[in-house]
Design a protein around this nucleic acid. Sequence first.
DNA 1: ATGAAAGCGCTAACAA
DNA 2: TTGTTAGCGCTTTCAT
Lengths: 360, 360
Amino acid sequence: MRVTAKQVAEKAGVSMATVSRVINRNGYVDASVRARIEKVMAEVGYVPNRTAKNLATGRTRTVGLIITSLQSPYFIRLTEGIQDVLENKGYHLLLCNTKFNTKIELENLQLLREGMLDGVITSTGNLTHEVMLGLVRQNYPMVFINRVFDELKDEATRAGFVMGDLHYAGLNVTRYLLEQGHRNIAVLYGAANSTSNQFRLEGMSQAYAALGLRVRPELLRCVANPPDPSSGLNDKEGAWAYSETLELLQTHPEVTAILVFYHPMLTGIMQALREVGRNVPDSVSLIGFDDFPLAPYLDPPLTVMDQPVYEIGRAAARLLVHKIEDATLRVAEPIVMKPEFIIRRSCAPVANRYPALAAE
Amino acid sequence: MRVTAKQVAEKAGVSMATVSRVINRNGYVDASVRARIEKVMAEVGYVPNRTAKNLATGRTRTVGLIITSLQSPYFIRLTEGIQDVLENKGYHLLLCNTKFNTKIELENLQLLREGMLDGVITSTGNLTHEVMLGLVRQNYPMVFINRVFDELKDEATRAGFVMGDLHYAGLNVTRYLLEQGHRNIAVLYGAANSTSNQFRLEGMSQAYAALGLRVRPELLRCVANPPDPSSGLNDKEGAWAYSETLELLQTHPEVTAILVFYHPMLTGIMQALREVGRNVPDSVSLIGFDDFPLAPYLDPPLTVMDQPVYEIGRAAARLLVHKIEDATLRVAEPIVMKPEFIIRRSCAPVANRYPALAAE
DNA sequence: ATGAAAGCGCTAACAA
DNA sequence: TTGTTAGCGCTTTCAT
């Protein structure tokens, strides 16, 4: 049978309170008494019951992380950053992978209300915007990645915000392509409703506008509604991207550059390109968002706009833990991190494609 | 303030027991009474407290998953399989990423003893062998991936086992290379102590033995002890593999094939190969273990021995949930899944390298 | 069909 | 420095 603190107390001839003090190393306990209790605990193999402690303290030292996919190196790296900090602070991570399913996301947010989670970090689209807003206003400790709530502008809540400078990222990537002569730049992204994508797209528009040009909306493709979201297929997201890319290239052969906002789509895009004989980078330039270990080893090595994802994760976790442990903390200003452009070999000037034209 | 079931009961003019019955939809409750209680719950915004429920029921509907890295597509896919099943059964996932740190692993195992976890799935090396064994003998619900306990052979415990046929995998990959004329096959693996590696190595030996040959132990390299395990460096594991590979190629230039048991090492291996001018596959053949979405897009496309990782994950989660929900369940037989060899372009016969020799 | 009441195992304020 | 005691909020027999 399980041994309880009460039994330890009886056996050691002390009160439960004293046992509790030695378990948690707080309060004053006489050295000899402590030794006696510890001896008893070791003898009977006492293990404290965590759920009882959770109930008594009203805390669980568990944090929820909500992401939309495990296939994206972005989320992996983010999770690593978060977990490294949490572990260091003695917190645990409950992982919720929504796979773009709002229902799953809501179920996990419910755990926050139910007191099973001390706080939550979210890095998802904004389908659950209203729910999140409600939670924030009820002062649950929450940290949002790459997301803003205009409604909260003048409110002092416990919510925290960490972001990459995605506007800057979109702006600079686009400027780079425009300078290389690209005018028909397609974008493939993963979730229509995410603020991350909006930021990048805004940056993109700005780069166009600087040249008196405009984004062509028909070249913006979202793959948020997968053909078969429930299949166990490996590389499911690549499969969606594949058909979308094929369609794009067919209807818009004038595309000379593709921006990939969501890396799980990369395989499908590359396969489609290959099948229709559009070589990278000579026929089409390709740029990914966020770096990942294998990027330099792809064929061709992928040029990417990187974000310090690991640091973003760390910052988010630190912020959340602060907010959990200090209920009065109010940090309204988002933490913003600068991206870095990493040029490899998946982009080429349009002139390479039409050398004759360029020579004129 | 938080609303409790007690307050709901008072407001609805019933007892807590009845409220509990409507929350959990069990026991008999008169339709009109149920409606009244539900109305009150909605009005006051009642949310049940999960930690209290956990304490009262002695269960948390939370399962721990212990893996050693998030950088390996193997663990990612495994996690997806596990999570898809858990979510479907109403369980949550507490993720423990040990990064080969035994201390972290032990801390998470402790959560099982402390009643915070209903069960645990482990897919790690066997540094914690004794601890695991103790837990199993105390009848905690546990499922092990790619691991066996000879000690448990004749005991009826609650432990479950799911494995890929790694012996078969090692055997066939090696046979394939031997048939292509390779005799100096190096192996780079991630954790010296893992049974998965042992199984593969045994298969390998068998393939050698069939030709009257033997494995050359000096060509087996483990990268379990990283130069800097705590750095936040992206692609840390690739960095370890890089230096190990460099050293290997320098001391053993006769190597014509490399088997990679742990994919996060791939980047470092490829870079080292590139730097010393050993072209894949003409100068060195490369085979990876387990497929992943980007494998066909590497330069060159990677030949791999794949495992049905997603299915392994699903099977493990199903088994664990069974064991949690039926304390009498005793399934000693491991579930074994067959691997599949996927040939792409990272292997070439040795004859390609020494055509003159082959022509003799 | 509903209620009373005894836990579940620990924490923490207060008293001593 | 230690003990007393009243919770934490829910579940679950056992009556009724």
